[in-house]
Amino acid sequence: MEKFTKSFPSKPLGAKTAKPWALAGVVGSGNLEVLVERGGKPSDAMECHVETSIPGYKASWLAALADFAHHYPAGGTKVTINDQGAPPVLVNLRLRQAYDHLTKGDK
């Protein structure tokens, strides 16, 4: 297991979201779950907590998370991830799904 926490600069999230939290994905082989919540600090950064079963890929994680924070206004969110070996492209997809559910609802 490898665990780390880091904040990434990101434009502030809108004042209103469809839900206070959203979850995407499932903890299964090659998959991960992403929980996105309002209330992360500060408001101009995306606060990330990652736990992964595959150690040694911190650089890839930081790149994937920084890329997401750069492209989406996710400042003031708290992102918590439980990972079981998902590839970076899936990490990006789940982040987008969770963010979409948070801002627009489940539909």
Binding site: L23, V27, E33, E51, T52, S53, N82, D83, Q84
Partner: peptide, 13 residues
């Protein structure tokens, strides 16, 4: 799960 965490297996919310 506190047990899975101790065993180094990923947990789920």
């Amino acid at each position: 799960s506190p047990y899975l965490a101790q065993l180094g297996i990923p947990v789920s919310f």
